[in-house]
Simulated assay, not measured.
Amino acid sequence: MKIKNITTFLLKVPLGDQRFYSSQCAFPERNSLLVRIETDTGICGWGESGQYGPGEPVATFIETVLKPRLIGKNPLDINVLWEDMFTGIRDFGRKTTGIEAMSGIDIALWDIAGKFYDKPVYELLGGAFRKKVLGYATGCYYRGEDVLDYKKSLQNLKDEASGYIDAGFTALKIKVGLLHVKEEMERIAAIREAVGNDIILMVDANHAYNFHTAKRIGKFLEEMNVHFFEEPVVPENIHGYKTLRETLNLAIAAGENEFTRFGYLELLKNECLDIIQPNIGCAGGFTEAKRIEALASAYHVQVIPHCWGSGIALAAALQYCATIAPSPHTAFECAPENSPMIEYDKNVNPLRDSLLTETFNVNDGFVQIPDGPGLGVEINMSVLKKHLTKT
């Protein structure tokens, strides 16, 4: 079996008045860069990359740099191909765009392997510790015509948070970092009041704070019984992460903006984090994500992957979650203390909810892991074509 062709598909869905903000930027659209690898036997695999910034640079990197290296190669030689790609771009692509491009290709290669062997990816990666994973709703962004008028939106914020709990989720991650700290505290308190004390609550700043501000709001998060504080400071602030972890009585999480095991090694050896969050579509695909997990286990740090993008990204993250060992082992695993959770972005996203021929099943807060061959999902090509902006 040989790789016959590699094609990228840039998808965009404008959100109109449903656009939202994190601390860093507006989201006026949902976008995704899908990767399809075709073989000479007719088996095709799908992957996803380019999930954070514009997809165009990643698509160009795949087309002009990686594709020529892969055409004619055996798609089942996944580790060999990963090393060939990485060493080929080491001088200019060890981070960001180059690794994102590799990630989408790696996911597609594992999808091909699963279809070839008629097994889900999790079986090829060594088996499943679980067939379902606790999902946490990600929501409570900044919405409305004036996102800075937080008082006007407080009731809507409480209703939104309560709606996720009514839908069956028992864990919720909310956004902070766009407003003054005292205003953010009011938002957080309102959400905690709305969902009650039994709900697992997590807070994500998207690296909005300097150290002393992160410490200030972190002390308040302790009072609010928050499970983890995600990306409190910028990814480069290694000392800040380490000191916050030593200072605050809650878990510090980060890693979505890191790439390959070499990047995660710096976070781990400097004792920066309680939880690392590799994104399969950015950190190096399944191949590298398993290496990152092994590295984390040596430092006794929990892995809870980050997930953002289309249904392909979610399917890949679910396959990965199946394979993550409890950390540490107990007779009955208990999420989130020692087993992974899956991030379930609850913003409007047709690229997750309509793009696949299958739907993701969420029951009692748990998301079922697809058990079909490969990623266990297939693309609805008519929906893909509807949202396609570039091939």
Results as ranks from 00 to 15, higher is better:
F20C: 08
F20T: 10
S22T: 15
S23P: 09
S23N: 05
Q24D: 09
C25I: 15
C25P: 07
A26N: 13
A26V: 15
F27H: 08
P28A: 12
E29A: 08
R30T: 08
R30N: 13
S32W: 07
L33T: 10
L34D: 00
V35S: 04
V35R: 00
R36C: 08
R36T: 06
I37E: 06
I37H: 13
T39E: 11
T39F: 06
T39Q: 04
T39S: 07
D40G: 10
D40P: 04
T41L: 10
T41V: 12
T41I: 12
T41S: 14
T41Y: 09
T41M: 11
I43F: 08
W46F: 12
G47Q: 05
G47D: 04
E48D: 10
E48N: 10
S49C: 15
G50S: 14
G53W: 15
P54A: 14
P54D: 15
G55F: 02
E56M: 11
E56P: 07
E56K: 14
V58F: 06
V58S: 04
A59R: 06
A59I: 07
A59K: 07
T60K: 10
F61K: 03
F61D: 00
F61H: 05
F61Q: 00
I62N: 04
T64R: 09
T64D: 14
T64F: 10
V65N: 15
V65H: 15
V65F: 14
L66C: 06
L66N: 01
K67G: 04
P68N: 13
R69V: 12
R69M: 15
L70W: 02
G72Y: 02
G72N: 02
N74G: 09
N74I: 08
N74F: 08
P75M: 02
P75E: 00
I78W: 11
N79D: 11
N79E: 13
N79P: 00
V80A: 12
V80M: 12
V80Q: 14
L81S: 01
L81N: 07
L81E: 00
W82E: 02
M85V: 08
F86V: 03
F86C: 05
T87I: 10
T87G: 11
I89S: 02
D91Y: 13
D91I: 07
F92L: 03
G93A: 01
G93V: 01
R94G: 08
R94L: 11
K95L: 09
T97N: 09
T97R: 01
G98I: 04
I99E: 01
I99C: 08
E100T: 11
E100K: 10
A101Y: 09
A101G: 02
S103V: 08
S103R: 11
S103H: 10
G104H: 01
I105N: 06
I105H: 04
I105A: 00
D106N: 00
D106P: 00
I107G: 03
I107M: 07
I107V: 15
A108R: 04
L109A: 02
L109K: 07
D111E: 03
D111V: 03
I112G: 05
I112V: 00
I112C: 00
I112R: 03
A113L: 05
A113R: 09
A113W: 01
A113T: 09
K115G: 00
K115M: 04
K115R: 09
F116E: 11
D118K: 13
K119Y: 09
K119M: 13
